[in-house]
Design a protein around this nucleic acid. Structure first.
Lengths: 142, 142
DNA sequence: CAGGATCCACCGTGATACTG
DNA sequence: CAGTATCACGGTGGATCCTG
């Protein structure tokens, strides 16, 4: 999905020296592919509060399956955002914590969360406005 | 940049009611569902440069199909992030521009892009490190 | 407790053809 | 030009069972 136009970051604010952002999204695709999935953000947020064991994470994130928690944490570990520590006890004990880079991402995520919270109502309003304008007499299917 | 943390950022342990997810996503899920898809960010970035017609957008975003551009712009309009203007000419002319809220989101996206660019190498390094550690002698299939 | 392995349903996406 | 409609596919995630 390489974008052929110019830099992603240098436009609006113009403080960025293009750099490697000329042809792709300067890696933003990778990040969004993670953040965009169903559970990653929740795991990051939970881990931003402190060290968590596998089970603790699962309990803290209602609805996540064992499989998805495993996959999500593994991917975060692969990307160096989360550090996994396994103790050779029995039963096994494994805990996860954000790396410095993970905390850095968490801060950025919080920034996005701030934006979401600030504009939540406006978005909801826009959606209902769109509804009444476009399918006011249509067979509402969405 | 707008990613400057307002409130939630430093709430690593305090984690206030307005904080991201946990119980409710404070709307971040809605935002990430948009940003997480394949084309939305690219459209936002392109529109952050100025007004664009349908065809211009498609040319500016290599690989996007007519269908996906239609869907993406429609969703952005629904959310009040993009404004659509249709002129009753023939052939039709329609142009899209970011709303103020759209520009606001673009700023946040740029913040994420900044983070991505800054940590792109570190992530790549972590991934290859993970590779050699976990499948250094395995039938590497991924 | 932590996580691997399988099977399966869903839906986001792409390709193509058609319309106003 | 700016869409809409239909079909087919692949990946993501859910449910379940099994292991160390």
């Amino acid at each position: 999905m390489s974008v052929a136009n110019t830099a992603v970051t240098s436009q609006v604010k113009g403080h960025l020296p293009a750099g490697p952002c000329g042809d792709d999204d300067c890696g933003i695709r990778d990040v969004l592919d993670r953040l965009g999935d169903k559970w990653t953000v929740l795991v990051i947020v939970e881990l931003s509060k402190g060290v968590r064991r596998f089970r603790e994470l699962q309990r803290a994130i209602p609805g996540i399956s064992q499989r998805m928690l495993t996959l999500t944490t593994k991917r975060l570990c692969q990307d160096g955002l989360v550090e996994r520590t396994a103790y050779p006890t029995v039963p096994p004990q494994v805990d996860y914590r954000l790396t410095p880079m993970g905390h850095s991402l968490a801060d950025t995520v919080f920034g996005l969360a701030d934006w979401s919270r600030d504009h939540k109502d406006a978005i909801a309003a826009a959606r209902s406005r769109w509804d009444v304008e476009h399918l006011g007499d249509e067979p509402a299917v969405r």
